Simulated assay, not measured.
Amino acid sequence: MNNPNINSDELTALFTADTPLIDVRAPVEFIQGSLPGSVNLPILNDEERALVGATYKQQGSKAAVMLGYKMISGRVKQDRLQQWLDFIRQHPRAVLYCFRGGKRSQITQQWLKDAGIDRPLIIGGYKQARQFLINTIDRFSENHRLLVITGPTGSGKTRLIQQISNNHPALDIEALARHRGSAFGGMPTPQPTQIDFENQLAVSLLKLKQSYLSDPIVVEDESRHTGKVYLPTSFFEHIRSSKIIWVDEPLATRVDNIFEDYILATPIGQALQARRNTQPLSSATEIQAMLCQRAQLLFDKYANALQAISKKLGGVRFQEISQDLENARSSFVNRNEIQSNKIWIEKLVKYYYDPLYLGSLQRRQVNPCFKGSRQAVINYLQTRKNRAIQSE
């Protein structure tokens, strides 16, 4: 079976099809950034790569290649070949790549061919594909429209994005970044590297553009940074220059939304559920004790996040909200009560997030094309879509 190698013109199809990829670079290269859909099955490990690189610098290409063949021979070669074969049996569409589509992926391809398996590689390797993904973001920012969802903290902007995603082109940036975008917004899973975040963003844009062609894509009004990752300049500037839709919800609704996301849907809420109809914490089961320990760690995390914004919050407000947080912790531990968390959440919204967010919108002189509740915004988007369909 002949499998021609993948050139740059075929990368869109490769990524939108979620093609499984075998990255044969060393682990140290992979963890810095990889292509979406990749698994790292290296032909050279970190130590072997370092030795081959040193030999290349000192003695040239021929000596480096000979050393590589010498190290990766016999049982070592068979073990690595078997890993590739096992993966390809589970993922028959798998494609190979190394850094530049050079020796490492070519040798891998040949060894697989000798074993009766013919799989393509990406011409130009990771470097070529990475440039393609960067260019994808830039081209999208120049040529495709956005509708930007804004509104104060707790308005349910992310929920709205998720709610409409089955019927509208929508991009959840916080999901890609694995962070909610605030000092309190870290998620259990670590954030991606900056490179991986950009690569995933590019592939998401490719898929949306393929599915919705010229329809505007709905995104949340994010700041440049979401946790430790940041939006590429072209895309961030595109967000800032796009049409704005304002989600307007009352404070009580916003506090309830935050309470649900940061208390009920976390180990705090899970621990409370596990402890219902049981004896006090001292006699809880092992699972209950584990959940309560995780809940305590989350309270600690929130206390640390509060400390991180203490200067911006101001000394008096910081002390007040810190005490409210500790009171909520005590109520959870001693009385199985979590509603008191709404006290510190409401004050944090009123005294910190609202002035910060609304001040930013005023400086930007935001003029929304629509303003209303979350449900009103959903209705507006559907009406807008229906009109676009009728005009076609």
Rank of each mutant, 00 (worst) to 15 (best):
N3Y: 14
R374D: 06
G315Q: 09
G60E: 02
G151K: 11
I195G: 05
D172E: 08
T189A: 02
Y357W: 13
I378E: 00
G124M: 03
D300N: 10
T12P: 12
G227I: 02
E142R: 08
D9V: 15
P120V: 07
A388T: 09
D18V: 09
G181N: 01
H179R: 04
S214Q: 12
K350W: 02
D9N: 15
N304D: 12
I31P: 01
S282E: 06
S242I: 14
S340K: 10
E337A: 09
R294E: 13
A54G: 02
C98T: 13
R317P: 01
L112T: 12
Q78T: 14
P42G: 05
L67G: 06
K347T: 12
T189Q: 11
V203L: 04
L325T: 12
G227H: 09
K127E: 07
I338P: 01
K342N: 08
R49F: 07
I122E: 03
E260L: 05
L21F: 01
Y353E: 00
R93W: 05
P250C: 05
C369A: 11
T153S: 07
P280S: 12
L35I: 07
V203G: 00
R89Q: 13
Y126H: 02
S234Y: 01
A50R: 13
L112D: 04
H168M: 14
K385I: 06
R180D: 11
Q288L: 03
M187C: 00
D9A: 15
L21C: 03
A252E: 13
D118T: 15
K103Q: 14
